[in-house]
């Protein structure tokens, strides 16, 4: 009996692979899938009082969500800020990756490690440094006032959407740099040379050859920047003020001060749904785009 089981095991890659995968899969199921299913069911309950929850199923929380102007506004703002952050991070990081992939000859690895090093220092501390820079008594304002250029501090720098966008562009830089670099570095240089030989201008070579070939990296970067930004809590809480608040700050309030767990669970579910929808849209659009361009 044991022998025959061993024989099956020795021959079957599926069983071997899943034996090895089982701890990871159990972890994901117990610590992520089950909790998320429970969160989903809580979004269909009702908070009666501080300690009491009514467990009858209802979609009322979702109706509430879309009837509350504040929540819808915050959702839209979260998406808008994430869109801006993604776009700006990509545009600013692209030339850097382009330079390293095509112009740097020696020690490309070193350049890359140096580019991603700040990313590993605490996220909280990086956000905090921006508070030092942008604050009303911060680096920028105090320097400008001391230099006599300004009389009063620039207030739009701090506690605003601008502050949130700048900080997150800095925070997620590595998420753009790595996928972009990888896709640019893979490009076979003879394609570009062929384009030049055929008389295309530099600009045309870029738009018709280099850029389309780097699209996989662009898609990867879009997704891994957009998703965490939609759910970001720290930056809007520290730097956003009232104007820069995002949906996650409200979710936290539902689980904290307001103590309305079903409403918080519903908001989190809506956030997750938004993220999934956007992921699907982005990958489909870019897939079509890639097919058309290449």
């Amino acid at each position: 009996m044991i022998k025959s089981w061993r024989k099956i095991y020795a021959k079957n890659d599926n069983i071997k692979a899943y034996t090895l995968l089982s701890p990871a899969l159990i972890l994901v199921i117990l610590a992520m899938v089950v909790p998320m299913v429970l969160m989903l069911s809580f979004s269909m309950f009702t908070q009666v009082s501080m300690m009491e929850i009514d467990y009858t199923f209802t979609f009322q929380r979702y109706i509430d969500f879309f009837q509350k102007n504040l929540l819808v506004t915050l959702l839209i703002k979260s998406i808008k800020i994430s869109f801006l952050v993604t776009l700006i991070t990509l545009i600013t990081a692209y030339p850097v990756c382009y330079y390293i992939a095509f112009y740097v000859k020696k020690n490309k690895m070193l350049w890359l490690v140096l580019l991603t090093l700040p990313f590993w220092t605490s996220y909280l501390l990086r956000v905090f440094s921006w508070k030092i820079i942008l604050g009303t008594k911060g680096v920028i304002n105090s320097s400008l006032i001391n230099a006599g250029i300004l009389n009063e501090p620039l207030t739009f720098l701090m506690y605003s959407e601008t502050a949130v966008v700048i900080t997150l562009t800095h925070a997620w830089a590595a998420f753009a740099l790595l996928p972009l670099y990888v896709s640019l570095d893979k490009i076979d240089f003879s394609f570009i040379e062929a384009g030049r030989d055929l008389g295309l201008s530099r600009f045309e070579v870029f738009w018709k050859i280099t850029f389309p070939l780097s699209l996989p990296g662009v898609i990867g970067a879009i997704l891994i920047i957009f998703i965490p930004t939609v759910g970001d809590y720290v930056t809007p809480a520290l730097l956003g003020g009232i104007e820069g608040r995002m949906l996650s700050n409200m979710i936290q309030a539902y689980f904290g001060k307001i103590n309305n767990i079903p409403m918080g669970a519903a908001s989190a579910t809506i956030m997750l749904t938004t993220v999934v929808l956007i992921t699907i849209i982005v990958s489909n659009v870019t897939k079509r785009l890639t097919q058309r361009l290449t």
Partner: peptide
């Protein structure tokens, strides 16, 4: 790694 961390946090908190 891919879904927003706040959602993981909330889900684990609830359970």
């Amino acid at each position: 790694f891919l879904i927003p961390e706040i959602i993981l946090a909330v889900a684990i908190l609830v359970i």
